[in-house]
């Protein structure tokens, strides 16, 4: 897979806005670089489908709601009982049947949908990361259901997100690229009272 034509947040010139580490910043925002991703559809209850996924990628698809599993640079996030986001390079999606996941699932009832460069991941970290998200998102961020290893789709202000908690109290927010500008600005504004630092995208 090739990278995006241009980053969804390129117009904000974040590389130029990048700052030296600020010890006083309560929250650090970082626009993560492009990462290949697909949506996988299939039935949780279809044992052959679940088994074929394991054969293809070497780890188990998360079947419990809002769980994440990963192995060898590939991460699978539960989005719904028949829907997963697979982050990482699982091989070409089109033409059909070329990638290792597509080969493993061939003949099974499923769909692999390339996400292209349609998504932007914003990393929110720092000691007040949870406080900033708590102002914008109705999820119970203190719940053990949102510890690392879990994920949840929800909303951030008026924008749909996929929240992926990371070790150390950081969060990865997945947004559609057309909402990336809005999500970035609303996070930066919500973080003002705690001090916002902008980090390198790498």
């Amino acid at each position: 897979m090739t990278g995006p034509r241009h980053q969804p947040l390129a117009h904000l010139a974040l590389a130029a806005a990048r700052e030296a580490p600020r010890p006083d910043a309560g929250v650090t925002l970082r626009a993560l670089p492009y990462q290949p991703s697909i949506i996988l559809r299939g039935e949780s209850g279809d044992a052959a489908f679940v088994k074929a996924f394991r054969a293809g990628l070497g780890f188990d698809l998360p079947l419990a709601p809002n769980h994440v599993s990963s192995h060898d640079e590939i991460t699978a996030l539960w989005l719904g009982p028949s829907e997963w986001l697979i982050l990482g390079d699982v091989g070409p999606v089109a033409p059909a049947g070329q990638g290792r996941l597509a080969r493993a699932l061939a003949g099974r009832h499923h769909a692999i949908i390339s996400q292209g460069d349609g998504r932007q991941i914003i990393a929110v970290s720092g000691p007040r990361a949870r406080d900033v998200l708590g102002k914008l998102c109705p999820l119970d961020l203190e719940s053990p259901d949102l510890a690392p290893g879990h994920c949840a789709r929800s909303i951030l202000a008026r924008c749909g997100i996929l929240l992926h908690p990371q070790p150390g109290g950081a969060y990865h927010l997945h947004v559609a690229r057309s909402f990336a500008d809005y999500a970035w600005r609303v996070l930066a504004e919500a973080g003002l009272e705690f001090g916002v630092a902008i980090a390198s995208g790498d």
Binding site: P65, N66, G80, P81, P138, L139, D140, D145, A152, R153, S154, I155
Partner: peptide, 11 residues
Amino acid sequence: PWCGDRSEEEF
């Protein structure tokens, strides 16, 4: 039924 208690805003 799948995700547990969530805010009405998500529905």
